[in-house]
């Protein structure tokens, strides 16, 4: 459902993505793995339209996304949970969710996913704990009823026990809804546990695509260690 071909992109003078190609099938969870600075976050920003790409193509269900504004890409069913969560700290939990529900969808989806949020509905998003903020960011993405979910470092800065709980809930929900997911995650154990397939990114290109079960320590070591 998502096809990326020969993508080139970067910031200012430096090129970060140097001809990356990637596909995500319907209902597939793909983990993007690789060392820091290899272009994983850049790729998500390109898909979302936050960063223009210099060459190559991004297609969603066969439709090109190139040149579309970020909001149009969002309206076509791409939801983004950015690194650092970027919830609206001054807005209440409910307002955060309502923003995503303005074009179809209901905030109940978010509360059903993480019932703990309901008790904090009237609190400002900024007053939540790190784990709850991450729940809110994911709930906000799911409320919009996306077809493709982009998750950037969802476990960053959250206690391990909470991470696993969130991961289980999200995986179950994504599976039941048949969502496609592109996941960037430093915690490779977690990433490989939830993903169907791992794509290793190295110096801005896709170096390998391997089913999660087939990823061995040696493979991990060759792409992840310095």
């Amino acid at each position: 459902m998502l096809e990326i071909q020969e993508l080139h992109a970067g910031y200012g003078g430096g090129e970060v993505l140097r001809g990356l190609s990637l596909g995500v099938a319907h209902g597939e969870i793909v983990a993007l793995l690789g060392r820091n600075g290899m272009g994983k976050t850049t790729l998500l920003r390109c898909i979302m339209g936050l960063l223009p790409h210099a060459a190559g193509s991004i297609r969603l269900e066969g439709q090109p996304l190139s040149g579309l504004d970020c909001f149009e890409i969002a309206r076509r069913g791409v939801a983004y949970v950015p690194q650092g969560r970027e919830i609206f700290g001054q807005l209440t939990v409910e307002e955060n969710l309502r923003l995503a529900a303005l074009r179809g969808g209901t905030i109940e989806t978010g509360y059903d996913l993480f019932p703990g949020l309901r008790a904090r509905a009237k609190d400002p998003g900024g007053s939540l704990s790190g784990g709850q903020q991450q729940q809110l960011a994911i709930a906000r993405a799911m409320v919009a009823k996306p077809r493709l979910l982009l998750l950037d470092e969802p476990s960053e800065g959250i206690q391990p026990s909470v991470v696993n709980e969130i991961a289980d809930i999200v995986t179950r929900s994504v599976r039941s809804m048949g969502l496609s997911v592109l996941l960037v995650e430093q915690n490779t154990d977690l990433a490989l546990r939830v993903a169907d397939r791992a794509v290793f990114v190295d110096h801005g290109v896709d170096a390998a695509s391997i089913a999660s079960r087939a990823v061995t320590r040696e493979i991990l070591a060759s792409y992840m260690e310095l």
């Binding site: 339209g49 909001f71 969002a74 970027e86 923003l99 995503a100 919009a144």
Partner: peptide, 18 residues
Amino acid sequence: LQARAVIANRNMAACLGI
């Protein structure tokens, strides 16, 4: 609500389809 979201974080607001 959308205006307040844009004031707080323009890019993230756009990511939500605003």
